[in-house]
Amino acid sequence: MLKVSSVTKYFRGLTAVRQVSFEVPTGAIVALIGPNGAGKTTTFNLINGMLRPEEGRIELDGRDITGLRPDQVCHAGVGRTFQIAKPLAGLSVLDNVVVGGLRITNKVAEARIAAAEILEVLDLAHKRDAAAGSLTLPERKRLEVARALATGPKLLLLDEVMAGLRPNETDALVETFRHLNRSLGLTILLIEHVMRAVMALSEHVVVLNHGVLISSGTPREVVRDPQVLECYLGEEAV
């Protein structure tokens, strides 16, 4: 589905991402982990077109999407959430999702029906008429997911949607993503610090540190990798 090849991005003198390559197979759930400042969100921004890489190539189903604008990448089938949620604050929760849904239809009435269904899935139906700006942090994160889902993506990029959730809320959201993955065949790439979610969801984990890919493999392999333990998880994680 997604193939990232030797992608490099500099910010002035700083190399945010250096020669990073990985793949997300169709139907898979892959996690991107690493300490703060490792280049995870930058990688997302490179994939979705908010940033343009200095080197390297990004392909979606064999199509080169390197350097496309975010709206073009969205039309190519990539939905994303933002780490710092960006609710359309003045609009209602439902209207936020309707905006996403208008990617696949020109009819507002159709988009509204689809949006209402998506709100059910993400447990936001009771908030549909509330202003998006009035939501709590966990609700905002779920709204991010709902809006991205409404655009009808093949690949969903989730940027720390579990952060700040209680364990039972995390488990509920994990269950939702598993359901989306299995029943709709949605491919997911997620950035996450909550290892409970990473271990439960992902089949494959990619670890970044200082913009460099230092490890990748199954969750079990990765948490035993000495390099990962040293820079990120700490010795006691095992």
Binding site: C74, K86, P87, L88, G100, R103, N106, A148, T151
Partner: peptide, 22 residues
């Protein structure tokens, strides 16, 4: 659709763009 897209741009241009809005 145009109205929804305008409001989305007004509220947050980056979010709007990520939702497929030119």
């Amino acid at each position: 659709k145009i109205g929804y897209y305008w409001l989305a741009i007004r509220e947050d241009q980056e979010a709007a763009q990520a939702l497929g809005i030119n």
